[in-house]
Every structure is written in C-alpha cells, then in structure tokens.
Amino acid sequence: MVRDITIGQYYPTESFIHRLDPRVKIVCTLLFIVSLFIQNSLPGYVVATIFLAAVIKMSKVPVGFIVKGLKPIVILLLFTVVMNLFLTRGGAELVQFWIFTITESGLKTSVFMAVRLIYLVMGSSIMTFTTSPNGLTDGLEKLLHPLNRVNVPVHEVAMMMSIALRFIPILLEETDKIMKAQQARGADFETGNIIQRAKSMIPILVPLFVSAFRRANDLAMAMEARCYHGGEGRTRMKPLKYKREDRLAYAVTVFYLVLIFAVGRFVPLRLWIF
C-alpha cells in the first residue's frame, strides 16, 4: 500500500543512538565525514572502522540494511576506483599491460578513496536510519537557528520541510488514484518509447498539480485559523534539550577525532604499500 511507505529510511526501534538528540547525530556525522577526508593513513582507517562498527552495533539497525544503502553509489564507487587506479602516477609500477599502468600510489589512493566513500554513506545512513524525518527537521532548524540573524528564514524552511514530509504519502496516493482513473478511460502508461511515455504523464501531472495547489490553499487557511504566524513567540511541544547521553556522545566523538589524528601521526603501522 502507498500509505505504508516511510519517507527517508527511518528504522524504528529502541536504541541508545535512536534516543540521542538529532543535533548530536547531525554534528557527529559531519565530524565523522570530515575525519575520513583529512587523514590518510592505515591506522586512521582502523580507528574509523572500529568507531563505525561500534556505532552500527549500538544502533541495532541490521547491517544488511546499511549495506543495502550502498547500492545507489556502486557506479560512482566503481568509477572513482577505476579512475584513481589507472590515472594516479607515483611510486613503483606494479602492473603494466597495453596502455594501462597501475602504480603503488594509484592502488593506495583508489583503495582509500573507496573506503572513504563507503564509510561516508554508511555513516550518514546510520544518521537517517536512527532519526525520524521530523527529528532531522527539528535538529536542522535548531542548528541553523543563528542564520536567522542574517535573514535566512530558518523556521519557515523547516516548517515547509515537515509539511512536505506529511503530504508526500497523500500526494502519492492521489497520483495512484489519478493514474487509475486515467487508465480506466484507456490511458496507456506502459508502452511506447521514452518520449511517448513522458507525454502520457501529462494527464497525470496536471490534475495532480491542481489538487496540490488546492490542498496548499486549504492548509494555509487551516494553519492561519489555528493562529500560525511564523516562528516568533512560538513555543515547542517537544523542545530539543541536551541530556547527559548527548554530552557523552559529543565527548566520545571528540575523543575519536583526537585519536584518529594521534594514531595517524604517531603509530607507524604499515602494511605493504599502505
């Protein structure tokens, strides 16, 4: 059923990571990604792997789910690996055939790059798996709040995001209804080349747009009737407040950052060319 789809990829369960404040998860994910890209040593990657594995374990999200999240980037990943492998020059030549040469530093860069991308996607999917879309919106609103001073309408944007999230299932259902209505009158969406199929979408999109605007109008009126007048003077039903666990999570992340740099600099762990 269209009604049952969840937006984003929230995996609802109870875990330490799920309970964390969304702001903590956003900031720590960013820090983790940064940490991946500004260090480049085997010991550093070992630390990052341990950290990521521990977080995944704590989140109680099945590893299979997270690995599935890598699917969309497989092509990008292959492209990056191939490009780095053949185009990076430096160090001893390892393999050479026809016009291709693989050098030591080529192999090193491509492997590290692949690991970085994989960890990046896994790290950020942990964030979306453990935070509800609304939590994310709230977290972003609170984090970006200082931008209000430079006239960025942070509250309004966050409100639009959460309304969009609420209406996605409704509009999907509506699309389904309109498609069925058009099919009942003989519309054909499946055959023909891509241009013909795109053209056959017009009778769906037009009524969908009309109805979306009508809904927007109704909703705006309902919001006004309930005294909505922007973020000013508004209180929150579920205000975000840092708890002890959240401070702990920040501390752990900072410790991880220190560790990854310290290890990268002072632990002379080398394995073959890496």
């Binding site: 999230l165 909703l219 309902a222 005294c227 909505y228 508004r234 209180t235 929150r236 039903m237 205000p239």
Partner: peptide, 26 residues
C-alpha cells in the same frame, strides 16, 4: 477536508500545533 487541515506528522504533534502558536508553555 480532513487531510488538508492536519499539519503534524504525528497525531499528538498536530494537536499541539495550535497551543504552540499561542506560545503556551511546554
């Protein structure tokens, strides 16, 4: 229209929307 006047993505959040706008304490 029941769909076009519910703002929250969770029932209780929607009911809280009006009081939030009025500035009622949490």
């Amino acid at each position: 229209n029941p769909d076009n006047q519910i703002i929250g993505t969770v029932v209780e959040e929607d009911v809280g929307f009006g009081p939030e706008n009025l500035g009622v304490p949490t």
